[in-house]
Design a binder for these strands. Structure first.
Length: 278
DNA sequence: ACCGGAGCCTGTTAGC
DNA sequence: TGCTAACAGGCTCCGG
């Protein structure tokens, strides 16, 4: 579901909601959600810990606890975190029913509950001392100053795979997913089907700028809400209103009027303007 | 090293 | 209306 801007929005929203609060207990209803350690050990280790730091790497949320450990959450396609108040003492438990898609619960010391919900069950949660066990293989952060056009040039050099697939490869560049890949390729006027190694330096420079601009604008808009994504505050993102090509196949290009095309690359729907991106 | 495809899951929508 | 196939913002694993 979420890409870099949506995860960044999530982390910024969670910080004031969770900072300093303590986990009294946790329940795991779908053990596979807990990638490491095993679910029993996980619930033991988080008990009594409080949230102390909030970060992001690629599409992973890094929630540091007051132990030596970090709770890492990846929402994948349909994961979501919600903080909700528990019913007042004496009220019925039916006031806070746990639906069948809620797989992990954290009971906090504030009479609140943090719930991990995930319809498709692709999302994963880790508790690790060393975050590099989970995020160590990720490529550079596209919004870091260290990510310069030359970085992208080295990534693409000699590659035969299409540039869309390369942008989605998290070990090459962290945080870009289907929406922001399509939107940045449109802005850079590059055909997503092109082999990565075929891009000229001028095109790589355009793509580098487009990636950063699109991701920053996505964060500014608090992410994109297609279908039902919304940050934990419940407010919806606004970047879906800025889409130039994503899920616009058959509609006219805002730049030239040509019908937006759809194809499949790297097993993912890919949207582009066949006139502007050639 | 690199690349493409199957698999993981459930729900919604398009098409006959 | 009812059924089926395609599709959905992601990633891992495996074979060539």
């Amino acid at each position: 579901m979420p890409e870099l801007p949506e995860v960044e929005t999530y982390v910024r929203a969670l910080k004031p909601l969770l900072k300093g609060k303590t986990i009294l207990s946790a329940e795991v209803h779908w053990p596979r959600t807990i990638a490491a350690p095993d679910a029993d050990r996980f619930t033991d280790l988080v008990r009594g810990r409080s949230f102390s730091s909030f970060g992001r790497r690629g599409k992973y949320m890094l929630l540091g606890l007051d132990s030596a450990e970090t709770l890492i959450v990846h929402l994948r396609m349909t994961g979501e975190l919600r903080l909700l108040p528990l019913p007042a003492p004496g009220a019925s438990a039916a006031d806070a029913p746990v639906d069948k898609h809620t797989h992990v619960l954290f009971n906090l010391d504030t009479r609140e509950q943090l719930r991990y919900r995930d319809t498709r069950k692709f999302g994963r949660i880790w508790l690790v001392e060393n975050t590099s066990e989970v995020v160590g293989k990720l490529g550079p952060e596209p919004l870091d100053d260290a990510f310069v056009p030359q970085t992208l040039a080295q990534t693409l050099a000699g590659r035969k795979a299409n540039v869309k697939a390369l942008l989605l490869n998290q070990s090459l560049l962290a945080g870009v997913g289907n929406i922001y890949a399509d939107e940045s390729l449109f802005r850079a006027r590059i055909d997503p089907r092109r082999a990565g190694g075929s891009l000229a330096l001028e095109e790589i420079e355009r793509l580098h700028l487009a990636l950063r601009d699109v991701l920053l604008e996505g964060i500014e808009a608090q992410g994109s809400s297609v279908q039902n994504y919304a940050p934990p505050t419940g407010a919806k993102g606004g970047f879906q209103d800025k889409f130039q090509v994503f899920r616009r196949s058959g509609e006219p290009c805002f730049t030239c009027g040509t019908s937006i095309s759809r194809t499949v690359l790297a097993q993912r729907s890919t949207h582009f303007c066949p006139a502007c991106q050639s």
